[in-house]
Computed example of a mutant assay.
Amino acid sequence: MPKRSGNGDSVIRVHYDAGWGRRITLRGSKPPLAWSTGLEATWTQGHVWTYVWPKSSGVLEFKPLLDDRAWSVGGNYHLRAGSTVDVYPFFGPPVGTLHKVHDFHSPQLDNRRTLVISLPPSYEENPLKRYPVLYMHDGQNAFEDATSFTGVSWGADRTSHSLVAQGRMDEVIIVGVYNTGNARVFEYTPGPPNGRMGGADLYGRFLIETVKPWVDGNYRTLPGREDTALMGSSLGGLVSFYLGRRRPDVFSKVACLSSSFMWNGSELIREVATSPERVPVKFYIDAGTRRDPLTPTQHMKEALESRGYVQGKDLSYYEHKGGQHHESSWAERVHRPLSYLFPWESSGGRATE
């Protein structure tokens, strides 16, 4: 995100290793920039291309190009008067990659599972960039039809890459955390452990104490709470909401699709409605209108609004007409939470040390 420039000038810093003999140019909405022809930025140490002009230029819309021929992928960028904006572009195809890690051990739950990590399109092309991270429950359903429980995945990676190309969301790393079959209900439900239920706190410790440090240590992440999110559906939506409320020091945004808010007599809804505390977390909640927990989701929306959450600001509520409790419905609308949690220009990747 843009930050205030110390000397009052407006500054663009494009972080990109263009390679020997190549250059970064800028085109934009105000002179001396134009959309028809680019002006070359100045290369500085660390492969930072800088362009400066007085803050009297006002608000500027601009885009970097490679050799003044290849436009950067995604939307236009914006520069406020007197601010500095850091841009981490890429110019290749908007296609990412999947990494799988098998037999990942949880000391908290004493079991093993697979992690599947969706890396964004620029990850290999622009090693100067770091990324927000979205942790998804039921990870086998997140990306691949072949591993999905129903044979249909959310396609969250493909949707996110498409949204990036359209300039509707920032690039993110998505970590799909597989469930463990018979232990799923235990891991995704709050409350004191009781047989097959109530292990959400242990599962949360697994994510926070084991998975997140491993991801942050092995990938170029932005590890702060403002760049860390949770998303899930059904019981995965329930545990997302539960962990988001209890650990706002780790997670700042949460997406809950078709969530089982009726769990344990709608305990979480009552908790939100009666709690004096307003947790500083952005929530996306939704449900379909066919055989889905629409009424409990409506009640959760009302509870959040009673605590001061505002639709379009720190709350996004959506009813999917005809939507059902199925991966195909979640795939149809996954673009909504992705673009809400990580809108274009909401997180600037920092240069590596």
Rank of each mutant, 00 (worst) to 15 (best):
E40G: 14
G167V: 13
D17V: 13
D201Y: 12
L65I: 07
E171V: 02
K282S: 10
D286V: 07
R22L: 12
P64C: 00
N182F: 10
R290M: 09
L65N: 03
M300N: 08
V334E: 04
V239N: 10
G312W: 02
R22Q: 14
G38R: 11
W263K: 11
W43S: 14
V279N: 06
S83K: 10
S106F: 04
R196W: 01
E187K: 15
T37R: 11
L128E: 01
R113Y: 07
T189P: 15
P107I: 01
G155L: 05
V52P: 05
A70V: 12
D138T: 05
D145L: 04
K55D: 14
A81Y: 01
P276Q: 04
W330Y: 09
H320E: 07
P192T: 15
N111H: 03
H15K: 11
L66W: 00
V116L: 10
F241T: 15
S56A: 14
D292T: 04
P31Q: 03
E353R: 12
V272C: 09
L243W: 03
T159N: 05
P293W: 06
G58L: 02
E144Y: 09
A146R: 06
T189E: 13
S10L: 00
T295K: 07
W344R: 00
D138P: 07
G348W: 03
S118Q: 05
L268Y: 01
S234V: 10
